[in-house]
Design a protein around this nucleic acid. Sequence first.
DNA 1: AGACCTTCCGCAACCGCTTTGGAACGATGA
DNA 2: TCATCGTTCCAAAGCGGTTGCGGAAGGTCT
Lengths: 343, 343
Amino acid sequence: MTINLKELSAKLGLSQTTVSRALNGYPEVSQSTRDRVAQAAARYGYRPNPRAKGLAVGRAFAIGHVIQSDGPTEIVNPIFGDFIAGAGAAYSQAGYEMVLSVVSDGDEAATYKALKARGAVDGVVLSGPLVTDPRIPLLQDIGLPFVVHGQTLDQVPDYDWVDVDNFEAFRSATTHLIDLGHRRIALINGHETMTFAHLRREGYLHSLEAAGIAPDPALMFSSDMTEEIGFRSCLKMLDADQPPTAFVVSSMISALGVRRAIEGRGLTMGRDISVVIHDDALSYLQNGSDRPIFTATRSSVRDAGREVADMLIRRIEDPTLPPQHLLLSAALVQGGSSGPALA
Amino acid sequence: MTINLKELSAKLGLSQTTVSRALNGYPEVSQSTRDRVAQAAARYGYRPNPRAKGLAVGRAFAIGHVIQSDGPTEIVNPIFGDFIAGAGAAYSQAGYEMVLSVVSDGDEAATYKALKARGAVDGVVLSGPLVTDPRIPLLQDIGLPFVVHGQTLDQVPDYDWVDVDNFEAFRSATTHLIDLGHRRIALINGHETMTFAHLRREGYLHSLEAAGIAPDPALMFSSDMTEEIGFRSCLKMLDADQPPTAFVVSSMISALGVRRAIEGRGLTMGRDISVVIHDDALSYLQNGSDRPIFTATRSSVRDAGREVADMLIRRIEDPTLPPQHLLLSAALVQGGSSGPALA
DNA sequence: AGACCTTCCGCAACCGCTTTGGAACGATGA
DNA sequence: TCATCGTTCCAAAGCGGTTGCGGAAGGTCT
């Protein structure tokens, strides 16, 4: 179908060796032949077969993403699409393929081992790290390069990561509400075994503490970040004896449920009840186009995907690199969902 | 790292040929040898290198998904994650890898050609088909097996597809509202260049016509299916001279905006205004867990992903198969968002 | 002029697997 | 006894690239 190296070199009257070297930038090729080769390659649309190339050089030119999917009920991370879109752009630009493995929960370790063993990928990206996550020592152990989207908190040897500053984001979100006069501020969070959620709670607590407000366990909730759960947990708090006057919510999707609950109780968001969310800037769920609907700490997960991918590529192409870290900050943008506490 | 065929056959005192044949189920191997080989393979954890295998047999054991992403603003399809999760399960079960290509809009044709040319994949799945979609003749032309998630409406040669019965879904959704006494029923749809949206409108129109209701262009809207756009289009209709009393909405996400608009005007969904949506059963955006929030025509996009993948694998493994079609039906489930029209 | 580099290029082996075309061997049938 | 036939296995040739090593041509230095 397509032209291969042998045919291309035949057309040029050169050996495969020379053509290969010219294409791959080896020095022992004269500039003139290099140009000729490049032109011919372009004209005939020559593309090296990645399998053959991979076989020869022992690399895959592919990067793995493992997505968990525990049975039909398990929720797919809603940020997945945007994250992938960001990462994918970086990969194709750098000449890598992206291979996805969906794996049922328990098999994740086995999957990594298999990916490594078969040489199917040159590296993987790890998503949704837990506060202490066994996958990280595992990957370090089997020697498969990786970058984490997020962090762990325990003392494993250093590793590459990209993360948003979740602590600071939620500290500032909470402080924003305190500055508006709120004292009873609820937190509707994701599972706090996951580091991002853990850090968000820490930021929240830190802010309360700095303001001399005692945290109330009845105002803290953590679970899946779905609309439904946001709705229920919010409703429950609103109906309690001492309802909160403000909410800090970990995701746009939970927040939709929170809004539904607030309005369902005949209250108005931004007036009766304030809400600040974290906004991953999902493309299909934007926080308003002109004025933000929700006051939010915003950080594009798509950009994060791109950063993760670039970092991993650097890691693969130079394994001796020192550990790389990137802490993205999430700026607080004022939207319509937060206002002064009522007297 | 891992054991390879040569080493395995050395350990067994057999030739690579025999071991390969034993493993691949060729007949010219005695049962006893076959068993010995199988056991040894299991014990040493032998896994054939897919690159080498692919090189030898000219297949990739991989399936491509192409996702469009036109610049940083373009929205990623929110159903993407669930669809992929469904498909991925089928692939891994059948021993295929899933490779994703993120591609900017114009390059899609080039991407398919490149995938085919490099033999990077054995087939691709096509998403979001247009009413008349050039990608289909293109793929037929270059001879890359494919399955479409959705359909086109023009007369290209037959091809494999999996789709939900969009016409019937929206016909029944609209009829449901008519039966409740509604006469002014709005449609908030996706882009009608896309077949699914086109068919939904047809179903909607068919139902109106059957009830002798003249369609009103002011009540039909089609655009991106985002929360924001759902909100705005709904608001505009509600504020018009003759507002609708009911909405049929193409996606859960638009519907969130529709709900926001309705409640923003001090109306109550299910009482003042009825809403029926199409629910893709996204895992992170479920339509209530016990009683559905929205009355909806429901069809799991995750199941669709699985069906698409299975169909494509069948196609790849037997190219002579006659065209395969699967029309999934979307049942109407009654939820809290629809009720009798007010007098 | 001869020794010695450079520069530029090609031969051939190799990556790990499949598969074609026999070879060896015991059993069978005439 | 000998040709025939299944059965069981192997050697070697690819698949499409990369790369170690060697060699020819031309230039530089005594």
